[in-house]
């Protein structure tokens, strides 16, 4: 239905007023034209934004949400392109199992597809499909952190491409497709920063180099 119109108000409202001796029923409708106007303008401004540790922390504080890695009690910590180890107590608060992230502006990692979807439901945002991801990052001109150029960088200082893999809502059976590659990727290794690369993980998987971005 209508959601909000361009003034940020709800489009339809039913109100029942009760006084001592009478009841008033009021129905207000704001024209559909106004709603369409806002929808068009919203579509024109679609933007992909990496979810940071700070934003995810707020979500957890507000909702008490527990991530898949916290439920399992362990997660995967990637040492380099080819080496993955299982680390107890690795989860979004301690991505390597030992330390908290150095900055709250880093992309949140050690989150799964399930965690990303819960965040989206709470924040009223959505995960991009794989194709949407590539469409929405094409104008990002910030430096691409890949090929071991730097450690994981703050979300607002690096290109969305590279840095950490992003979870998308594109499915293959029970697996979801990752996009964008991480700082380990290069043309000679995992090719993650190229659109043709196909990497799938299951819906519970977290990794120190997997985060997510949402469409706002």
């Amino acid at each position: 239905m209508s959601k909000k119109n361009y003034l940020g108000l709800k489009s339809c409202k039913i109100i029942i007023y009760m006084r001592n001796n009478y009841i008033i029923l009021l129905l207000s409708i704001i024209p559909i034209a106004a709603i369409s106007c806002r929808r068009e303008s919203k579509n024109a401004q679609k933007k992909l934004e990496v979810v940071t540790y700070k934003e995810f922390k707020r979500f957890v504080q507000k909702t008490g949400y527990v991530t898949d890695a916290e439920k399992f009690g362990w997660s995967i910590v990637q040492q380099d392109v080819f080496n993955f180890i299982k680390v107890d107590s690795a989860h979004w608060r301690m991505p390597d199992g030992l330390h908290a992230p150095l900055s709250e502006n880093l992309p949140v990692t050690q989150v799964s597809y399930n965690d990303a979807m819960a965040y989206c439901a709470w924040s009223g945002t959505e995960l991009p499909s794989y194709d949407q991801y590539w469409e929405l990052i094409k104008d990002d001109e910030r430096v691409v952190i890949a090929n071991h150029l730097a450690p994981i960088s703050a979300a607002d200082e690096a290109n969305i491409l590279g840095n950490v893999w992003e979870i998308t809502r594109t499915l293959r059976g029970n697996e979801i497709r990752l996009a964008g590659g991480s700082l380990f990727c290069s043309s000679t290794t995992c090719h993650g920063t190229s659109k043709e690369r196909e990497v799938y993980v299951d819906k519970q998987t977290g990794n120190m180099h997997i985060g997510f971005a949402v469409i706002r």
Binding site: K10, C12, I15, M18
Partner: peptide, 8 residues
């Protein structure tokens, strides 16, 4: 006055 409202 008491009121109940539903907006959508």
């Amino acid at each position: 006055l008491f009121l109940v409202a539903y907006s959508f």
